[in-house]
Computed example of a mutant assay.
Amino acid sequence: MNQVSTALTRRGFLATGTAALAAPMFLSDARAQDKFVMKIAHTEGIGTPITNAFDAWAKTLNEKSGGRIDAQHFPAAQLGGLAEALEGSRIGTIQVTTAGPDSEEAIAPEIAVLGGAPGFIYKNEEHVDKVLQGELGQKASDIAREKTGVEFVAYGETGFRHILSKRPVASLADLNGLKIRVPQLRIWVDFWTLLGAAPTPLPYNEQYSALSTGIIDAIDSDVFSIIGFKFYEQAKNLTLTGHWFLPKAVRVNAAWLDSLPQDLQDLVRSSAKEAFAEQRRINRENAAKALDELKTLGVNVQSLPPEELAKMEELTAKLFDEFGSKSPETAEMIKAMQALG
């Protein structure tokens, strides 16, 4: 090989080598500038603490990611009801939704327990925090990732649920035959059946019209949703029972999350925890104010007497054993939760 061809070959090698060395940096820079669309869709009402938290979280993600995450927020069932939101989050057609862990009853009953199933399992807000902000909350997220393809990056809450009805409910006897809307989950049907009511499974976004047409006589709900969805327009009696505390897992499609650069994965997780810690604080602080607002809107608010509440708890207590029989892991989770109370 002559000197000219040798020089050309060496020059070509150096050029190729330089390009090869530069390629990872170029690809890394391109990767860093990718934009990741993040559709957040759920059924929570406009103006509720949890919807406001998603608004704040989306803004934080858009700003702190430098535009690399395009967080788009669709509250109040704008992209479909709860079933559609859950399925979308599992298959990745939407990236984020929120729902109670009880929505996983069929797939992972040990997670469903953290959603308040089967009623009266959470004693107070301190008990809720011990469960969800500790090892059990992380364990539930790990199980959700494995079995459903979503990660619980944080826990918000709508709070304790009460009975909103067309006619007053002042005692356990008043529940007899009461057509009360329930989610399309077996545990909720069993709970109200044991109390003598007539549970009626309906999608969340059909509650207002069902109250209006008489398909149902009552719903059980947190106070913020009663205001946000204007359920008070169709039912004027609120009985405070606190029979069910419903946490809201912030569910992110795991495959989408894993597709992000590590810094954006960290941002999603850390900012979610911050946003929903604030949501829980606001939710608890404003619950009394929401009750006062309902009174000004013409809602009759009363508490169920303690002895009647005790009867409700006694009648539904056997559901713990029944629900625990679904799997050894479910029974273990129930015992672990109860031990923290």
Score class of each variant (00 low, 15 high):
residue 111 I to C: 09
residue 112 A to I: 14
residue 113 V to F: 10
residue 115 G to N: 11
residue 116 G to E: 10
residue 117 A to R: 07
residue 118 P to R: 11
residue 118 P to I: 13
residue 120 F to C: 00
residue 121 I to T: 13
residue 121 I to E: 00
residue 121 I to Y: 07
residue 124 N to W: 13
residue 125 E to K: 10
residue 126 E to V: 15
residue 127 H to A: 06
residue 128 V to M: 04
residue 129 D to L: 09
residue 129 D to S: 12
residue 129 D to Q: 14
residue 131 V to M: 02
residue 132 L to K: 07
residue 132 L to Q: 05
residue 132 L to S: 08
residue 133 Q to I: 10
residue 133 Q to L: 13
residue 134 G to F: 12
residue 134 G to S: 10
residue 134 G to T: 10
residue 135 E to Q: 14
residue 136 L to E: 07
residue 136 L to V: 11
residue 136 L to C: 08
residue 136 L to Y: 04
residue 137 G to W: 13
residue 137 G to N: 03
residue 137 G to P: 09
residue 137 G to Y: 04
residue 139 K to E: 14
residue 139 K to N: 07
residue 139 K to Q: 14
residue 139 K to P: 00
residue 140 A to W: 10
residue 141 S to Y: 08
residue 144 A to G: 10
residue 144 A to V: 12
residue 144 A to P: 01
residue 145 R to W: 03
residue 145 R to V: 15
residue 146 E to G: 05
residue 146 E to F: 05
residue 147 K to E: 13
residue 147 K to Y: 03
residue 148 T to H: 01
residue 148 T to W: 01
residue 149 G to P: 01
residue 150 V to D: 01
residue 150 V to T: 12
residue 150 V to G: 02
residue 150 V to H: 00
residue 151 E to Y: 12
residue 153 V to P: 03
residue 153 V to R: 00
residue 154 A to M: 10
residue 155 Y to C: 04
residue 155 Y to W: 12
residue 156 G to T: 07
residue 157 E to P: 03
residue 157 E to Y: 02
residue 158 T to L: 11
residue 158 T to Y: 01
residue 158 T to P: 01
residue 159 G to F: 02
residue 161 R to D: 11
residue 161 R to W: 09
residue 163 I to Y: 00
residue 164 L to T: 02
residue 165 S to P: 03
residue 165 S to E: 07
residue 167 R to M: 12
residue 167 R to Q: 15
residue 168 P to K: 15
residue 168 P to A: 13
residue 171 S to T: 15
residue 173 A to P: 00
residue 174 D to R: 07
residue 175 L to A: 09
residue 175 L to P: 03
residue 176 N to K: 15
residue 176 N to V: 06
residue 177 G to R: 09
residue 179 K to T: 06
residue 179 K to V: 02
residue 179 K to P: 03
residue 180 I to N: 05
residue 181 R to P: 02
residue 181 R to V: 07
residue 182 V to E: 06
residue 183 P to W: 11
residue 184 Q to T: 14
residue 185 L to S: 12
residue 185 L to Y: 12
residue 187 I to W: 15
residue 187 I to M: 11
residue 187 I to F: 13
residue 187 I to H: 14
residue 188 W to K: 11
residue 192 W to G: 01
residue 192 W to E: 08
residue 193 T to W: 06
residue 194 L to Y: 05
residue 195 L to P: 00
residue 195 L to S: 08
residue 195 L to E: 02
residue 195 L to H: 04
residue 195 L to G: 04
